[in-house]
Design a protein around this nucleic acid. Structure first.
Length: 145
DNA sequence: CGATTTTGACCGGCGC
DNA sequence: GCGCCGGTCAAAATCG
């Protein structure tokens, strides 16, 4: 599979980063509704998968600072691609499928096939925009590609 | 033959 | 306390 990637059309995509306990404090802004935030890169004209992987690693490092981790890093991005599952070099084992209320489309749950690797991957196809795919990564790989 | 996928059911958490 | 939604696991079947 190989992502083939290389150059997917990331014309429209959103990057979502999640920070476990960023000082949530007692009062979370109602506007945020949590510690989730959407980030949209300025020049998203051409973003390649490698870039996303970098972001992932970076985020992991930050989030896991001090913790062993395995943790709780979560990143999600919506891409405008007909391909839902792109191969990022890791082997994924599907462990579930579920239909979400918000989306009439089924959501696929993947998990890294490597032992000791508790990374989870969630892929949801946008039913209204068939060409949009929301991929969410959770956790950190204990091994290199 | 082994690993992986598939569907359904079960469980847990959150909300009201 | 009950209901809803989402997530995970499990057994069987399939593919390579």
């Amino acid at each position: 599979m190989a992502i083939s990637t290389h150059q997917l059309d990331f014309e429209d995509f959103l990057l979502l980063r999640h920070y476990p306990e960023t000082a949530s404090s007692t009062s979370l802004s109602p506007l945020n509704g949590g510690s989730w935030g959407w980030e949209v890169p300025g020049n998203s004209a051409c973003l390649d998968y490698s870039y996303m992987l970098q972001i992932t690693n970076e985020g992991c490092a930050k989030t896991m600072e001090g913790e062993e981790g395995v943790g709780k890093f979560k990143i999600a991005f919506r891409t405008k691609s007909g391909i839902e599952v792109m191969d990022d070099g890791y082997k994924w084992r599907k462990y579930g499928k579920k239909k979400i209320k918000d989306n009439p489309n089924p959501r696929h749950y993947f998990r890294c096939a490597r032992q000791g690797c508790k990374v989870k991957k969630r892929v949801e196809r946008d039913g209204e925009d068939g060409h949009f795919v929301i991929t969410t990564y959770e956790g950190k790989h204990n091994h290199q590609t």
